[in-house]
Design a protein around this nucleic acid. Structure first.
Length: 586
RNA sequence: GGGGGUGUAGCUCAACUGGUUAGAGUACCAGACUGUCGAUCUGGAAGUUGCGGGUUCGAGUCCCGUCACCCUCGCCA
């Protein structure tokens, strides 16, 4: 070892010991005679003092510059009381230098490693290995490793078998766009990178593995967001001879352990189960953030006959009116009220009507249209009190519900109600099995084509497919969907019916999933599972908004790696070998 | 593919309505200084204002185009 101690561990108990520490020079303070160096490594910062009496060592130390890598040997000394640094774990001691070695010199850095100001994200991505030296980045990567470690312990205790599934797979046209890999041996043929190991884990159940897990890298060629990378990581789990309660009970105990281990906080089990319909109605979202209230009230009936045409008209046209009631402690300025329509316009909502509730009477643009009876009924429905504000959205359900959800989140943000130190989780269950494609009117699988319908809804499959509920469950933490799964179809007849409803013919199914549908003929255990979006889990536990922060080498929103400059063009020879010709962009 | 934001010294940022030689902090270079921890003090070097075009006597600033990054809608079974 080049060192006897790290830069984070020296304390008063080490006083008098001769030690060697290695690290990056984070700061140097040159007093002409005395020289102070702050040496940094992953574990902390230690002050090294070079006294002119140290001779060659002091002279060598005098020549160092920021971010050089050095090795310093000396005796640990207690600092005089007035020179202690209480902000630093090692601040009671310092190393009196007697031997010094420069391990590596450094040019001035192109990104800011120390200090409060962080360099532009573009630079941080280009020089990710330098930005990584920032303690908060190192901490995030440590948190990620900690999460993985807790998961490994958990799945081991619970009898899961880790299986690695192929990265080079077959493309299946459903779902997201695939990343493709050309085959050299088979001209014109391509592998696809997995969007998730869905079919493979079901096949593992058919193979009798019973309990499978894997930390699986997944790839989707779609546009990116703060919480979406082209390659991302799933904790993938599948279990045989279970129902949804079994999967949920086990998985929520894993969540509880993760939250406890990473943040020291406790979440109460069992988690609440909320139906998809209830979540959409009360929170306007299939992933409600339960850290704050501001629930959405259905006031359609109350305002069905309202003199205000925006309300009554919406109801008459089969739509709904939704209301959020703000208490006296949450007031919005006129400017803030005027800015609300911009929050919901993305969802197609026309605007936000508002009323101020006052002892002396109601005011605001919508107030004069409300009859005394309607005011009474609104007060009863929303619990609004004098000093409060009522916000209304009216229109078709498919627009108003999510718009009200966006509005609720906006208000939660505005009033600082989303406490980053709190963790509120729940299950969203009984989502529809299908949704209707707004363009073609075709049925689409809401989760995926292998999700089982609820037994009591199977009779509705052909008659009223949109009413069929799935045996699916999503795990939501602080408004993020962190895991989603389902009980799968293990009956080949039922699977054929579902394919039929999705417009996948017998022949199509044979062509696309033949290997899988055939497997359904040979004895399938009832099974189900779940996939966790591990990046989001880690980001949430680490209190980060962007998953880029908890990925060692992330990509940009155009799916580029600024560090290694991927993607990049390749030699003509390579293309020829792969039987590929590139068409110039028109 | 659409909408919004950002782009000035190695880094973080200034530059009023278009107007002198584009400034400051920090890093870097040189010097001074024996208890600092954002050390201090003195001096120096450092710029294709993302790129291209246009308007103007004059453009960092206005206009058009383009590129990169960030946020977002669509998309992500």
């Amino acid at each position: 070892m080049l060192r006897t101690h790290t830069c984070g561990e020296l304390r008063e108990e080490h006083v008098g010991e001769r030690v060697t520490v290695c690290g990056w020079v984070q700061n140097r303070r040159d007093h002409g005679g005395l020289l102070f160096l702050d040496l940094r490594d992953r574990y902390g910062v230690t002050q090294v003092v070079a006294d002119p009496d140290a001779g060659d060592a002091a002279a060598a130390a005098d020549r160092v510059r920021l971010e050089w890598v050095v090795r310093a040997t000396g005796t640990v000394r207690a600092r005089p009381d007035e020179n202690r640094n209480p902000d630093r774990a090692t601040g009671a001691v310092e190393v009196m230098l007697d031997e010094f070695e420069v391990l590596s010199r450094a040019d001035p850095l192109p990104v800011a490693v120390t200090g409060a100001e962080r360099s532009a994200e573009e630079l941080g991505l280009r020089y990710r290995y330098l930005e990584m030296r920032r303690p908060e980045v190192l901490r995030a990567l440590e948190t990620r490793a900690h999460v993985n470690r807790v998961i490994r312990e958990f799945v081991h205790e619970n009898g899961f078998v880790e299986v690695e599934t192929p990265i080079l797979l077959r493309s299946t046209p459903e779902g997201a766009r695939d990343y493709l890999v050309p085959s050299r041996v088979h001209p014109g043929a391509f592998y696809a990178l997995p969007q998730s190991p869905q079919l493979l884990k079901q096949l593992l159940m058919i193979g009798g593995l019973d309990r499978y897990w894997q930390i699986a890298r997944c790839f989707r060629d779609e546009d990116l967001r703060a919480d979406r990378q082209p390659e991302f990581t799933q904790l993938d789990i599948e279990m045989s001879f279970v129902d949804e309660d079994d999967v949920q009970a086990l998985m929520e105990s894993l969540l509880r352990r993760l939250v406890s281990e990473i943040t020291g906080q406790d979440i109460a089990l069992p988690l609440r189960r909320m139906s998809y319909a209830e979540a959409m109605a009360r929170y306007g979202s299939d992933k409600p953030d339960l850290r704050f209230g501001l629930e959405i009230h259905d006031v359609s009936d109350v305002l069905a006959e309202c003199a205000f045409g925006v309300f009554s008209g919406a109801v008459r046209d089969g739509g709904i009116v939704r209301c959020i009631a703000l208490g006296p402690d949450h007031t919005l300025s006129r400017k803030q009220l005027d800015a609300l329509p911009a929050v919901v316009v993305d969802r197609g909502a026309r605007g936000v009507a508002w009323v101020k509730v006052r002892e002396e009477g109601w005011s605001g643009p919508a107030a004069r249209h409300l009859s005394d009876g309607e005011r009474e009924a609104l007060t009863a429905a929303t619990g609004c009190a004098p000093g409060g504000t009522l916000l209304f959205l009216a229109g078709p359900r498919r627009i108003v519900e999510p718009a009200a959800g966006d509005l609720r989140l906006h208000l939660g943000k505005t009033f600082g109600l989303r406490d980053p130190r709190r963790f509120e989780a729940l299950w969203i269950v009984a989502a529809p099995l299908f949704e209707s494609d707004p363009e073609s009117g075709r049925l689409l699988a809401m989760h995926h084509a292998f999700t089982a319908p609820r037994a009591e809804d199977v009779a509705l499959l052909e008659r009223e497919p949109l009413a069929v509920r799935a045996r699916a469950y999503d795990l939501v933490l602080n408004g993020d969907e962190i895991a989603g799964g389902s009980i799968r179809i293990h009956d080949r007849e039922l699977q054929s019916r579902i394919f039929g409803l999705l417009g996948i013919s017998e022949k199509d199914a044979e062509h696309r999933f033949g290997f899988f549908t055939e497997a359904l003929r040979y004895g399938v255990p009832p099974h189900g599972g779940i996939a966790w979006g591990l990046d989001r889990v880690v980001a949430s536990l680490a209190g980060r908004e962007q998953i880029r922060d908890i990925i060692a080498f992330p990509k940009t929103t155009s799916a580029a790696d600024l560090m290694c400059q991927a993607p990049a063009t390749v030699d003509e020879d390579q293309l020829a070998e792969l039987h590929i010709g590139v068409t110039p962009d028109a």
